[in-house]
């Protein structure tokens, strides 16, 4: 109903506007001008600009990823080196400790040996002195015994004995 009204209401002689050839030339001309300008602007300015933006972002991202990868590799290497050094240090510490222990043991043993040697020397010296003293004493005991015997005999029998007789008697009695 409305459509038929619309047709009825149309100005006389007017075709259905989208098929009216009156303005075909005008429309094509203005389409060529506007779309041509649009195409020119898009292809010369806007598309290169957008492509540049996307390209540089893409480059930036891949560069950053490469950088991250490189840093990760570096960090891994540093970690490995650290682990290695730690292991080395542990091993060194162990060997230093055992060396120190050995050295200390060695020193202690040396010191003991020295002390023992000194002691042994002192002991033998002391023994030698004792032996000497004993010998001296023993020697003196003989003389004392002779003197005493002489004195006793003089007192008891009033006679006089020769030295050799006394010595003979003492050694006989001493054994």
């Amino acid at each position: 109903m409305i459509i038929s009204q619309a047709y009825a209401a149309e100005p006389s002689g007017g075709a259905f506007p989208p098929f009216d050839p009156t303005y075909f030339a005008s429309q094509i001309l203005w389409l060529v001008i506007t779309f041509g300008a649009f195409y020119w602007l898009m292809s010369r300015v806007i598309i290169p600009r957008l492509a540049g933006i996307l390209e540089s972002r893409h480059d930036r991202i891949s560069r950053d990823l490469d950088e991250a990868q490189r840093l990760k590799t570096e960090a891994d290497a540093a970690h490995a080196a650290y682990e290695h050094e730690l292991a080395e240090a542990k091993r060194n510490a162990h060997s230093i400790a055992s060396e120190a222990t050995d050295k200390a043991k060695q020193e202690a043993a040396d010191a003991r040996e020295k002390v023992e040697a000194e002691l042994a020397e002192k002991l033998s010296e002391a023994e030698a002195r004792i032996a000497k003293i004993k010998e001296t004493a023993m020697g003196e005991v003989g003389a004392i015994a002779g003197d005493t015997t002489e004195e006793i005999v003089k007192q008891l029998i009033g006679g006089k004995l020769t030295k050799s007789e006394i010595t003979k008697a003492i050694s006989g009695a001493g054994n």
Partner: peptide, 21 residues
């Protein structure tokens, strides 16, 4: 004899190009 008037159609084409650009 060719009508190449600037019409409402032309106006909207120009507006499209100007606004979009």
């Amino acid at each position: 004899a060719t009508n190449i008037s600037f019409t409402n159609s032309s106006l909207f084409m120009v507006a499209t190009v100007v606004v979009t650009s």
